[in-house]
Write a protein that binds this DNA or RNA. Structure first.
Lengths: 253, 253
DNA sequence: TTATTTTTGATTGCTTTTGGTTATTTTTGA
DNA sequence: TCAAAAATAACCAAAAGCAATCAAAAATAA
Protein backbone atom coordinates (compact mmCIF):
# COMPACT_ATOMS: atom_id res chain seq x y z
CA UNK A 1 0.00 0.00 0.00
CA UNK A 2 1.33 3.42 -0.93
CA UNK A 3 1.65 6.40 1.35
CA UNK A 4 -1.23 8.48 -0.05
CA UNK A 5 -3.40 5.41 0.28
CA UNK A 6 -2.41 4.86 3.88
CA UNK A 7 -2.79 8.54 4.62
CA UNK A 8 -6.36 8.43 3.45
CA UNK A 9 -7.11 5.33 5.51
CA UNK A 10 -5.47 6.70 8.62
CA UNK A 11 -7.38 9.96 8.40
CA UNK A 12 -10.60 8.09 7.76
CA UNK A 13 -10.11 5.77 10.71
CA UNK A 14 -9.21 8.71 12.92
CA UNK A 15 -12.22 10.66 11.83
CA UNK A 16 -14.47 7.80 12.86
CA UNK A 17 -12.78 6.86 16.11
CA UNK A 18 -11.61 10.29 17.26
CA UNK A 19 -8.28 8.92 18.44
CA UNK A 20 -6.30 5.74 17.90
CA UNK A 21 -3.04 4.26 19.17
CA UNK A 22 -0.14 3.39 16.92
CA UNK A 23 -0.72 -0.27 17.69
CA UNK A 24 -4.41 -0.08 16.86
CA UNK A 25 -3.67 1.61 13.56
CA UNK A 26 -0.94 -0.89 12.79
CA UNK A 27 -3.34 -3.79 13.35
CA UNK A 28 -6.22 -2.13 11.53
CA UNK A 29 -4.21 -1.49 8.37
CA UNK A 30 -1.83 -4.46 8.70
CA UNK A 31 1.20 -2.19 8.59
CA UNK A 32 4.20 -2.25 10.91
CA UNK A 33 4.25 0.24 13.80
CA UNK A 34 7.44 1.78 12.42
CA UNK A 35 5.70 2.77 9.22
CA UNK A 36 2.63 4.03 11.07
CA UNK A 37 4.89 6.30 13.16
CA UNK A 38 6.60 7.67 10.09
CA UNK A 39 3.22 8.31 8.47
CA UNK A 40 1.77 9.99 11.56
CA UNK A 41 4.82 12.22 11.73
CA UNK A 42 4.40 13.31 8.12
CA UNK A 43 0.63 13.80 8.28
CA UNK A 44 0.93 15.77 11.52
CA UNK A 45 3.42 17.95 9.67
CA UNK A 46 0.69 18.77 7.17
CA UNK A 47 -1.55 19.80 10.04
CA UNK A 48 -4.19 17.17 9.35
CA UNK A 49 -3.99 15.33 12.65
CA UNK A 50 -2.66 15.77 16.15
CA UNK A 51 0.17 13.51 17.19
CA UNK A 52 0.04 12.22 20.75
CA UNK A 53 2.33 9.89 22.64
CA UNK A 54 1.20 6.45 21.71
CA UNK A 55 -1.05 7.49 18.86
CA UNK A 56 -2.90 10.34 17.19
CA UNK A 57 -6.10 12.38 17.46
CA UNK A 58 -8.26 13.96 14.84
CA UNK A 59 -8.34 17.71 14.48
CA UNK A 60 -11.81 19.19 14.74
CA UNK A 61 -11.43 21.93 12.15
CA UNK A 62 -8.91 20.60 9.66
CA UNK A 63 -7.52 23.09 7.21
CA UNK A 64 -9.36 22.74 3.92
CA UNK A 65 -6.42 21.32 2.06
CA UNK A 66 -8.36 21.33 -1.16
CA UNK A 67 -8.19 25.06 -1.21
CA UNK A 68 -4.46 25.51 -0.97
CA UNK A 69 -4.66 27.92 -3.87
CA UNK A 70 -1.87 30.15 -4.92
CA UNK A 71 -1.80 32.59 -2.07
CA UNK A 72 -0.88 35.54 -4.24
CA UNK A 73 -1.33 39.17 -3.42
CA UNK A 74 -4.78 39.01 -4.96
CA UNK A 75 -5.91 36.36 -2.49
CA UNK A 76 -5.52 38.76 0.38
CA UNK A 77 -7.41 41.45 -1.50
CA UNK A 78 -10.19 39.03 -2.37
CA UNK A 79 -10.46 37.93 1.22
CA UNK A 80 -10.90 41.55 2.32
CA UNK A 81 -13.46 42.21 -0.36
CA UNK A 82 -15.40 39.10 0.64
CA UNK A 83 -15.37 40.13 4.26
CA UNK A 84 -16.46 43.68 3.44
CA UNK A 85 -19.31 42.46 1.24
CA UNK A 86 -20.51 40.02 3.91
CA UNK A 87 -20.93 42.94 6.30
CA UNK A 88 -23.77 44.15 4.10
CA UNK A 89 -25.72 40.95 4.64
CA UNK A 90 -28.16 41.08 7.55
CA UNK A 91 -30.11 38.46 9.42
CA UNK A 92 -33.17 37.43 7.46
CA UNK A 93 -31.79 38.50 4.08
CA UNK A 94 -32.38 36.58 0.89
CA UNK A 95 -29.31 36.89 -1.34
CA UNK A 96 -28.09 35.78 -4.75
CA UNK A 97 -24.48 34.61 -4.88
CA UNK A 98 -22.67 34.35 -8.21
CA UNK A 99 -19.90 31.85 -8.88
CA UNK A 100 -16.33 33.13 -8.77
CA UNK A 101 -13.54 33.16 -6.22
CA UNK A 102 -14.15 36.61 -4.78
CA UNK A 103 -17.82 36.00 -4.05
CA UNK A 104 -16.83 32.62 -2.61
CA UNK A 105 -14.70 34.38 -0.03
CA UNK A 106 -17.87 35.78 1.55
CA UNK A 107 -18.81 32.32 2.84
CA UNK A 108 -16.55 32.37 5.87
CA UNK A 109 -18.15 35.58 7.07
CA UNK A 110 -21.71 34.48 6.35
CA UNK A 111 -21.55 31.59 8.79
CA UNK A 112 -22.25 33.85 11.76
CA UNK A 113 -25.47 35.25 10.27
CA UNK A 114 -28.89 34.02 11.27
CA UNK A 115 -31.74 32.87 9.11
CA UNK A 116 -30.40 33.89 5.73
CA UNK A 117 -31.31 32.29 2.44
CA UNK A 118 -28.74 31.90 -0.31
CA UNK A 119 -29.67 31.33 -3.93
CA UNK A 120 -26.60 30.27 -5.89
CA UNK A 121 -25.32 28.45 -8.94
CA UNK A 122 -21.90 27.74 -7.43
CA UNK A 123 -20.99 24.28 -6.16
CA UNK A 124 -18.09 25.45 -3.99
CA UNK A 125 -20.44 27.86 -2.20
CA UNK A 126 -22.96 25.07 -1.79
CA UNK A 127 -20.29 22.77 -0.34
CA UNK A 128 -19.05 25.46 2.01
CA UNK A 129 -22.46 26.38 3.39
CA UNK A 130 -24.22 23.02 3.42
CA UNK A 131 -23.33 22.35 7.04
CA UNK A 132 -24.44 25.72 8.39
CA UNK A 133 -27.84 25.21 10.04
CA UNK A 134 -28.85 28.89 9.99
CA UNK A 135 -28.46 29.18 6.23
CA UNK A 136 -31.01 27.84 3.81
CA UNK A 137 -29.80 27.12 0.32
CA UNK A 138 -31.65 27.27 -2.96
CA UNK A 139 -29.63 25.71 -5.73
CA UNK A 140 -30.08 26.95 -9.25
CA UNK A 141 -30.79 24.13 -11.69
CA UNK A 142 -29.50 23.59 -15.20
CA UNK A 143 -26.48 22.34 -17.10
CA UNK A 144 -23.35 21.69 -15.09
CA UNK A 145 -20.16 23.43 -16.17
CA UNK A 146 -17.65 20.93 -14.77
CA UNK A 147 -14.71 23.19 -15.22
CA UNK A 148 -16.13 26.19 -13.41
CA UNK A 149 -18.07 24.00 -10.98
CA UNK A 150 -21.18 26.01 -11.54
CA UNK A 151 -24.59 25.72 -13.17
CA UNK A 152 -25.36 27.78 -16.24
CA UNK A 153 -27.49 27.88 -19.38
CA UNK A 154 -31.00 28.97 -20.30
CA UNK A 155 -32.65 26.80 -17.67
CA UNK A 156 -30.54 28.42 -14.95
CA UNK A 157 -31.49 31.92 -16.11
CA UNK A 158 -35.13 30.92 -16.11
CA UNK A 159 -34.73 29.59 -12.57
CA UNK A 160 -33.25 32.87 -11.35
CA UNK A 161 -36.01 34.86 -13.04
CA UNK A 162 -38.58 33.11 -10.89
CA UNK A 163 -37.08 34.50 -7.68
CA UNK A 164 -36.49 37.88 -6.12
CA UNK A 165 -33.75 38.58 -3.58
CA UNK A 166 -32.90 41.54 -1.40
CA UNK A 167 -29.32 41.62 -2.58
CA UNK A 168 -27.19 40.13 -5.32
CA UNK A 169 -23.43 39.58 -4.99
CA UNK A 170 -21.86 39.19 -8.40
CA UNK A 171 -18.49 39.16 -10.12
CA UNK A 172 -17.31 40.27 -13.55
CA UNK A 173 -14.17 39.90 -15.61
CA UNK A 174 -13.84 43.59 -16.46
CA UNK A 175 -15.38 46.92 -15.59
CA UNK A 176 -14.75 50.38 -17.00
CA UNK A 177 -16.55 53.70 -17.31
CA UNK A 178 -16.34 53.43 -21.11
CA UNK A 179 -17.54 49.89 -21.75
CA UNK A 180 -19.43 49.07 -18.60
CA UNK A 181 -19.44 45.42 -17.54
CA UNK A 182 -17.67 42.72 -19.56
CA UNK A 183 -17.24 38.96 -19.21
CA UNK A 184 -15.19 36.14 -20.76
CA UNK A 185 -18.21 34.16 -21.87
CA UNK A 186 -21.81 34.82 -22.74
CA UNK A 187 -22.93 32.06 -20.40
CA UNK A 188 -21.42 33.71 -17.37
CA UNK A 189 -22.79 37.10 -18.22
CA UNK A 190 -26.33 35.82 -18.73
CA UNK A 191 -26.33 34.51 -15.17
CA UNK A 192 -24.90 37.73 -13.78
CA UNK A 193 -27.50 39.81 -15.63
CA UNK A 194 -30.29 37.61 -14.31
CA UNK A 195 -29.07 38.04 -10.74
CA UNK A 196 -28.90 41.79 -11.18
CA UNK A 197 -32.37 42.29 -12.63
CA UNK A 198 -34.05 40.24 -9.89
CA UNK A 199 -32.38 41.79 -6.87
CA UNK A 200 -33.17 44.91 -4.89
CA UNK A 201 -29.54 45.97 -4.54
CA UNK A 202 -26.65 44.74 -6.62
CA UNK A 203 -23.15 44.47 -5.16
CA UNK A 204 -20.28 43.97 -7.56
CA UNK A 205 -17.23 42.33 -5.97
CA UNK A 206 -14.16 43.21 -7.96
CA UNK A 207 -10.52 43.66 -7.03
CA UNK A 208 -8.73 46.71 -8.38
CA UNK A 209 -6.84 44.70 -11.03
CA UNK A 210 -10.05 44.34 -13.03
CA UNK A 211 -11.09 47.97 -12.86
CA UNK A 212 -10.45 49.85 -16.05
CA UNK A 213 -9.97 46.54 -17.89
CA UNK A 214 -12.34 45.15 -20.48
CA UNK A 215 -13.01 41.56 -21.39
CA UNK A 216 -14.53 40.61 -24.70
CA UNK A 217 -18.23 40.24 -24.05
CA UNK A 218 -20.04 43.48 -23.18
CA UNK A 219 -23.23 42.70 -21.31
CA UNK A 220 -24.41 45.64 -19.28
CA UNK A 221 -23.74 49.17 -18.20
CA UNK A 222 -22.80 50.52 -14.83
CA UNK A 223 -26.36 51.43 -13.87
CA UNK A 224 -26.96 47.72 -13.30
CA UNK A 225 -24.81 47.95 -10.19
CA UNK A 226 -25.47 49.90 -7.01
CA UNK A 227 -22.38 49.16 -4.90
CA UNK A 228 -18.87 48.36 -6.01
CA UNK A 229 -16.97 46.47 -3.32
CA UNK A 230 -13.25 46.66 -3.98
CA UNK A 231 -9.87 47.11 -2.32
CA UNK A 232 -8.22 50.40 -1.49
CA UNK A 233 -5.68 50.48 -4.31
CA UNK A 234 -7.92 52.55 -6.50
CA UNK A 235 -6.61 55.80 -7.90
CA UNK A 236 -8.55 59.05 -7.96
CA UNK A 237 -9.22 58.95 -11.69
CA UNK A 238 -10.71 55.44 -11.48
CA UNK A 239 -12.87 56.47 -8.54
CA UNK A 240 -14.15 59.52 -10.31
CA UNK A 241 -15.04 57.68 -13.47
CA UNK A 242 -17.08 55.14 -11.58
CA UNK A 243 -18.76 57.33 -8.98
CA UNK A 244 -19.63 59.69 -11.79
CA UNK A 245 -21.67 56.89 -13.30
CA UNK A 246 -23.65 56.57 -10.08
CA UNK A 247 -21.74 53.75 -8.39
CA UNK A 248 -21.21 53.79 -4.65
CA UNK A 249 -17.71 52.57 -3.86
CA UNK A 250 -17.31 50.47 -0.74
CA UNK A 251 -13.84 49.50 0.42
CA UNK A 252 -12.27 48.07 3.49
CA UNK A 253 -10.44 50.76 5.39
CA UNK B 1 -2.93 0.19 -28.49
CA UNK B 2 -2.06 3.86 -28.87
CA UNK B 3 -1.17 6.20 -26.05
CA UNK B 4 -4.39 8.24 -26.03
CA UNK B 5 -6.25 4.94 -25.96
CA UNK B 6 -4.26 3.65 -23.03
CA UNK B 7 -4.54 6.96 -21.27
CA UNK B 8 -8.31 6.81 -21.42
CA UNK B 9 -8.37 3.23 -20.17
CA UNK B 10 -5.95 3.94 -17.36
CA UNK B 11 -7.95 6.94 -16.19
CA UNK B 12 -11.18 5.01 -16.44
CA UNK B 13 -9.84 2.06 -14.48
CA UNK B 14 -8.46 4.41 -11.86
CA UNK B 15 -11.74 6.21 -11.56
CA UNK B 16 -13.53 2.99 -10.85
CA UNK B 17 -10.99 1.49 -8.48
CA UNK B 18 -9.67 4.63 -6.79
CA UNK B 19 -6.11 3.35 -6.86
CA UNK B 20 -4.26 0.63 -8.74
CA UNK B 21 -0.74 -0.78 -8.76
CA UNK B 22 1.48 -0.79 -11.82
CA UNK B 23 1.22 -4.57 -11.92
CA UNK B 24 -2.57 -4.53 -11.71
CA UNK B 25 -2.78 -2.01 -14.54
CA UNK B 26 -0.30 -3.96 -16.61
CA UNK B 27 -2.39 -7.12 -16.24
CA UNK B 28 -5.69 -5.33 -16.76
CA UNK B 29 -4.62 -3.74 -20.04
CA UNK B 30 -2.16 -6.45 -21.13
CA UNK B 31 0.67 -3.94 -21.39
CA UNK B 32 4.18 -4.30 -20.01
CA UNK B 33 4.92 -2.62 -16.67
CA UNK B 34 7.57 -0.48 -18.36
CA UNK B 35 5.02 1.12 -20.64
CA UNK B 36 2.55 1.57 -17.80
CA UNK B 37 5.22 3.43 -15.84
CA UNK B 38 6.00 5.69 -18.76
CA UNK B 39 2.30 6.40 -19.24
CA UNK B 40 1.70 7.08 -15.56
CA UNK B 41 4.63 9.47 -15.55
CA UNK B 42 3.22 11.40 -18.49
CA UNK B 43 -0.37 11.46 -17.27
CA UNK B 44 0.74 12.56 -13.81
CA UNK B 45 2.58 15.38 -15.57
CA UNK B 46 -0.73 16.52 -16.97
CA UNK B 47 -2.12 16.53 -13.45
CA UNK B 48 -4.81 13.97 -14.19
CA UNK B 49 -3.70 11.38 -11.66
CA UNK B 50 -1.52 11.03 -8.62
CA UNK B 51 1.57 8.90 -9.03
CA UNK B 52 2.48 6.79 -6.00
CA UNK B 53 5.24 4.29 -5.40
CA UNK B 54 3.94 1.10 -6.87
CA UNK B 55 1.02 2.59 -8.70
CA UNK B 56 -1.29 5.55 -9.05
CA UNK B 57 -4.38 7.09 -7.46
CA UNK B 58 -7.19 9.13 -8.85
CA UNK B 59 -7.33 12.76 -7.92
CA UNK B 60 -10.27 13.50 -5.68
CA UNK B 61 -12.36 16.55 -6.16
CA UNK B 62 -11.69 18.24 -2.85
CA UNK B 63 -14.63 20.59 -3.09
CA UNK B 64 -17.26 17.91 -3.16
CA UNK B 65 -15.97 15.40 -0.64
CA UNK B 66 -18.64 16.61 1.77
CA UNK B 67 -21.32 15.14 -0.47
CA UNK B 68 -20.10 11.61 -0.34
CA UNK B 69 -22.60 8.94 0.55
CA UNK B 70 -22.13 7.16 3.83
CA UNK B 71 -22.19 3.41 4.12
CA UNK B 72 -25.38 1.81 5.41
CA UNK B 73 -27.24 -1.49 5.50
CA UNK B 74 -27.75 -4.07 2.74
CA UNK B 75 -24.68 -2.81 0.87
CA UNK B 76 -24.04 -5.98 -1.08
CA UNK B 77 -27.61 -6.33 -2.31
CA UNK B 78 -27.76 -2.68 -3.26
CA UNK B 79 -24.48 -2.96 -5.13
CA UNK B 80 -25.86 -5.84 -7.21
CA UNK B 81 -29.07 -3.99 -7.91
CA UNK B 82 -27.13 -0.90 -8.97
CA UNK B 83 -24.95 -2.93 -11.29
CA UNK B 84 -27.90 -4.70 -12.80
CA UNK B 85 -29.76 -1.43 -13.39
CA UNK B 86 -26.71 0.17 -14.99
CA UNK B 87 -26.67 -2.60 -17.57
CA UNK B 88 -29.89 -1.15 -18.95
CA UNK B 89 -28.24 2.17 -19.70
CA UNK B 90 -26.84 2.45 -23.21
CA UNK B 91 -24.50 4.90 -24.87
CA UNK B 92 -26.33 8.07 -25.79
CA UNK B 93 -29.12 7.64 -23.22
CA UNK B 94 -30.65 10.50 -21.29
CA UNK B 95 -31.60 9.29 -17.83
CA UNK B 96 -33.21 10.58 -14.65
CA UNK B 97 -31.56 9.47 -11.42
CA UNK B 98 -33.40 9.78 -8.13
CA UNK B 99 -31.64 10.31 -4.81
CA UNK B 100 -31.22 7.29 -2.57
CA UNK B 101 -28.45 4.86 -1.82
CA UNK B 102 -29.50 2.10 -4.22
CA UNK B 103 -29.70 4.37 -7.25
CA UNK B 104 -26.38 5.89 -6.18
CA UNK B 105 -24.75 2.49 -6.54
CA UNK B 106 -25.28 2.67 -10.30
CA UNK B 107 -22.61 5.38 -10.60
CA UNK B 108 -19.62 3.07 -10.58
CA UNK B 109 -21.04 1.14 -13.49
CA UNK B 110 -22.04 4.20 -15.46
CA UNK B 111 -18.49 5.44 -15.74
CA UNK B 112 -17.71 3.15 -18.63
CA UNK B 113 -20.63 4.41 -20.74
CA UNK B 114 -20.19 6.92 -23.51
CA UNK B 115 -22.06 10.12 -24.10
CA UNK B 116 -24.81 9.77 -21.55
CA UNK B 117 -26.70 12.61 -19.91
CA UNK B 118 -27.79 12.37 -16.30
CA UNK B 119 -30.53 14.55 -14.84
CA UNK B 120 -30.48 14.28 -11.06
CA UNK B 121 -31.38 15.95 -7.78
CA UNK B 122 -28.79 14.03 -5.78
CA UNK B 123 -25.57 15.67 -4.61
CA UNK B 124 -23.71 12.38 -4.01
CA UNK B 125 -24.42 11.34 -7.59
CA UNK B 126 -23.22 14.73 -8.78
CA UNK B 127 -20.01 14.37 -6.77
CA UNK B 128 -19.40 10.87 -8.06
CA UNK B 129 -19.93 11.67 -11.73
CA UNK B 130 -18.56 15.20 -12.02
CA UNK B 131 -15.12 14.01 -13.12
CA UNK B 132 -16.31 11.60 -15.79
CA UNK B 133 -15.81 13.37 -19.12
CA UNK B 134 -18.24 11.20 -21.08
CA UNK B 135 -21.15 12.04 -18.78
CA UNK B 136 -23.03 15.32 -18.96
CA UNK B 137 -24.91 16.37 -15.87
CA UNK B 138 -28.07 18.41 -15.55
CA UNK B 139 -28.68 19.37 -11.96
CA UNK B 140 -32.22 19.89 -10.77
CA UNK B 141 -32.73 23.24 -9.05
CA UNK B 142 -34.72 24.06 -5.96
CA UNK B 143 -34.57 23.91 -2.18
CA UNK B 144 -31.70 21.97 -0.67
CA UNK B 145 -32.53 19.21 1.77
CA UNK B 146 -29.30 19.20 3.77
CA UNK B 147 -30.03 15.98 5.52
CA UNK B 148 -30.74 13.92 2.42
CA UNK B 149 -28.21 15.84 0.34
CA UNK B 150 -30.75 16.33 -2.41
CA UNK B 151 -32.87 19.01 -4.01
CA UNK B 152 -36.64 18.93 -3.63
CA UNK B 153 -39.75 21.09 -3.55
CA UNK B 154 -42.12 22.59 -6.08
CA UNK B 155 -39.38 24.27 -8.09
CA UNK B 156 -37.58 20.95 -8.49
CA UNK B 157 -40.73 19.24 -9.74
CA UNK B 158 -41.27 22.06 -12.21
CA UNK B 159 -37.67 21.63 -13.40
CA UNK B 160 -38.16 17.92 -14.01
CA UNK B 161 -41.42 18.55 -15.85
CA UNK B 162 -39.57 20.60 -18.43
CA UNK B 163 -37.44 17.61 -19.51
CA UNK B 164 -38.01 14.20 -21.04
CA UNK B 165 -35.63 11.27 -20.55
CA UNK B 166 -35.39 7.82 -22.10
CA UNK B 167 -35.24 6.13 -18.72
CA UNK B 168 -35.84 6.98 -15.07
CA UNK B 169 -34.15 5.16 -12.19
CA UNK B 170 -36.06 5.73 -8.98
CA UNK B 171 -36.33 4.41 -5.43
CA UNK B 172 -39.24 4.10 -3.02
CA UNK B 173 -39.68 3.30 0.66
CA UNK B 174 -42.31 0.65 0.18
CA UNK B 175 -44.01 -1.33 -2.58
CA UNK B 176 -46.88 -3.81 -2.42
CA UNK B 177 -49.52 -5.17 -4.74
CA UNK B 178 -52.23 -3.80 -2.40
CA UNK B 179 -51.05 -0.25 -1.81
CA UNK B 180 -48.75 0.37 -4.74
CA UNK B 181 -45.88 2.75 -4.12
CA UNK B 182 -45.37 4.49 -0.79
CA UNK B 183 -42.83 6.97 0.59
CA UNK B 184 -41.79 8.49 3.91
CA UNK B 185 -42.43 12.07 2.84
CA UNK B 186 -44.56 13.87 0.34
CA UNK B 187 -41.54 15.79 -0.88
CA UNK B 188 -39.70 12.66 -1.92
CA UNK B 189 -42.69 11.16 -3.62
CA UNK B 190 -43.40 14.30 -5.63
CA UNK B 191 -39.92 14.06 -7.15
CA UNK B 192 -40.27 10.35 -7.86
CA UNK B 193 -43.65 10.89 -9.53
CA UNK B 194 -42.23 13.68 -11.66
CA UNK B 195 -39.37 11.46 -12.84
CA UNK B 196 -41.80 8.67 -13.69
CA UNK B 197 -44.23 10.75 -15.74
CA UNK B 198 -41.48 12.32 -17.85
CA UNK B 199 -39.54 9.19 -18.75
CA UNK B 200 -40.05 6.62 -21.48
CA UNK B 201 -39.29 3.66 -19.23
CA UNK B 202 -39.32 3.65 -15.45
CA UNK B 203 -36.98 1.37 -13.47
CA UNK B 204 -37.66 0.94 -9.77
CA UNK B 205 -34.58 -0.08 -7.77
CA UNK B 206 -35.65 -1.78 -4.61
CA UNK B 207 -34.10 -4.46 -2.44
CA UNK B 208 -36.33 -7.32 -1.30
CA UNK B 209 -36.67 -5.94 2.24
CA UNK B 210 -38.97 -3.20 0.97
CA UNK B 211 -41.19 -5.43 -1.09
CA UNK B 212 -44.53 -6.14 0.53
CA UNK B 213 -43.92 -3.27 2.98
CA UNK B 214 -45.85 -0.02 3.02
CA UNK B 215 -44.72 3.39 4.16
CA UNK B 216 -47.18 6.09 5.13
CA UNK B 217 -47.57 8.23 2.02
CA UNK B 218 -49.29 6.49 -0.88
CA UNK B 219 -48.39 8.24 -4.10
CA UNK B 220 -48.83 5.99 -7.09
CA UNK B 221 -49.80 2.56 -8.28
CA UNK B 222 -47.70 -0.12 -9.86
CA UNK B 223 -48.57 0.86 -13.41
CA UNK B 224 -46.20 3.84 -12.99
CA UNK B 225 -43.29 1.38 -13.11
CA UNK B 226 -42.16 -0.79 -16.01
CA UNK B 227 -39.19 -2.68 -14.55
CA UNK B 228 -38.52 -3.68 -10.97
CA UNK B 229 -34.80 -4.24 -10.37
CA UNK B 230 -34.28 -6.22 -7.20
CA UNK B 231 -32.23 -9.01 -5.61
CA UNK B 232 -32.98 -12.70 -5.88
CA UNK B 233 -34.44 -13.21 -2.40
CA UNK B 234 -37.98 -12.82 -3.63
CA UNK B 235 -40.50 -15.52 -2.90
CA UNK B 236 -42.97 -16.88 -5.43
CA UNK B 237 -45.99 -15.14 -3.86
CA UNK B 238 -44.28 -11.74 -3.99
CA UNK B 239 -43.27 -12.29 -7.58
CA UNK B 240 -46.73 -13.28 -8.61
CA UNK B 241 -48.38 -10.31 -6.94
CA UNK B 242 -46.09 -7.89 -8.72
CA UNK B 243 -45.88 -9.49 -12.14
CA UNK B 244 -49.66 -9.84 -12.03
CA UNK B 245 -49.81 -6.06 -11.86
CA UNK B 246 -47.79 -5.82 -15.06
CA UNK B 247 -44.28 -5.33 -13.61
CA UNK B 248 -41.29 -6.91 -15.27
CA UNK B 249 -38.93 -8.22 -12.63
CA UNK B 250 -35.22 -7.93 -13.36
CA UNK B 251 -32.72 -9.53 -11.01
CA UNK B 252 -29.09 -10.39 -11.05
CA UNK B 253 -28.66 -14.11 -11.47
C1' DT C 1 9.94 -1.00 -51.44
C1' DT C 2 13.32 0.95 -48.33
C1' DA C 3 14.81 4.21 -44.86
C1' DT C 4 13.66 6.72 -40.80
C1' DT C 5 11.29 7.54 -36.78
C1' DT C 6 8.60 6.09 -32.98
C1' DT C 7 7.10 2.88 -29.74
C1' DT C 8 7.55 -1.11 -27.01
C1' DG C 9 9.45 -4.38 -23.73
C1' DA C 10 13.54 -6.50 -21.45
C1' DT C 11 17.79 -5.85 -18.77
C1' DT C 12 20.43 -3.53 -15.30
C1' DG C 13 22.02 -0.46 -11.86
C1' DC C 14 20.01 2.85 -8.66
C1' DT C 15 16.59 4.76 -5.44
C1' DT C 16 12.85 4.42 -2.32
C1' DT C 17 10.32 2.10 0.96
C1' DT C 18 9.70 -1.05 4.61
C1' DG C 19 10.07 -3.55 8.96
C1' DG C 20 13.16 -5.06 12.55
C1' DT C 21 16.65 -3.78 16.08
C1' DT C 22 18.50 -0.68 19.33
C1' DA C 23 19.63 3.56 21.71
C1' DT C 24 17.26 7.61 23.35
C1' DT C 25 13.48 10.19 25.02
C1' DT C 26 9.18 10.69 27.35
C1' DT C 27 5.81 9.37 30.58
C1' DT C 28 4.18 7.25 34.77
C1' DG C 29 4.06 5.91 39.44
C1' DA C 30 6.26 5.51 43.72
C1' DT D 1 13.30 13.10 42.36
C1' DC D 2 14.19 8.77 40.64
C1' DA D 3 13.48 4.44 38.38
C1' DA D 4 10.72 1.43 35.56
C1' DA D 5 7.95 1.15 31.59
C1' DA D 6 6.46 2.66 27.30
C1' DA D 7 7.03 5.00 23.10
C1' DT D 8 9.90 7.08 19.81
C1' DA D 9 13.52 8.05 16.45
C1' DA D 10 17.65 6.56 14.28
C1' DC D 11 19.96 3.05 11.96
C1' DC D 12 20.33 -0.89 8.90
C1' DA D 13 19.49 -4.52 5.71
C1' DA D 14 16.18 -6.67 2.64
C1' DA D 15 12.79 -6.04 -0.72
C1' DA D 16 10.28 -3.64 -4.01
C1' DG D 17 9.93 -0.28 -7.46
C1' DC D 18 11.89 2.86 -10.75
C1' DA D 19 14.45 5.26 -14.57
C1' DA D 20 17.94 4.74 -18.01
C1' DT D 21 19.66 2.15 -21.67
C1' DC D 22 19.24 -0.70 -25.61
C1' DA D 23 17.51 -3.74 -29.12
C1' DA D 24 13.50 -5.35 -31.57
C1' DA D 25 9.12 -4.32 -33.58
C1' DA D 26 5.83 -1.31 -35.51
C1' DA D 27 4.42 2.74 -37.76
C1' DT D 28 5.41 6.41 -40.85
C1' DA D 29 7.65 8.72 -44.61
C1' DA D 30 10.27 8.91 -48.74
Amino acid sequence: MSFPDRRKKILNALHQAGSLSVIELSEKLAISPATIRRDLHDIAGEGLLLRTHGGAMKIENPILTGFIEKIGANEVKKEQIGKCAAEHVHDGDIIFMDCGSTVFKMCTYLKTKNNIRVITNSLPILAELIDVPAIQINLIGGELDKHRKAIHGAKAVQHIDSYHAHKAFVGVDGISAENGLTAHTENESAITSAFARNAGEVFLLCDSSKIGKDSYFKFGDLSMIKYLVTDKELNAAQKEGLTGAGLIIVADE
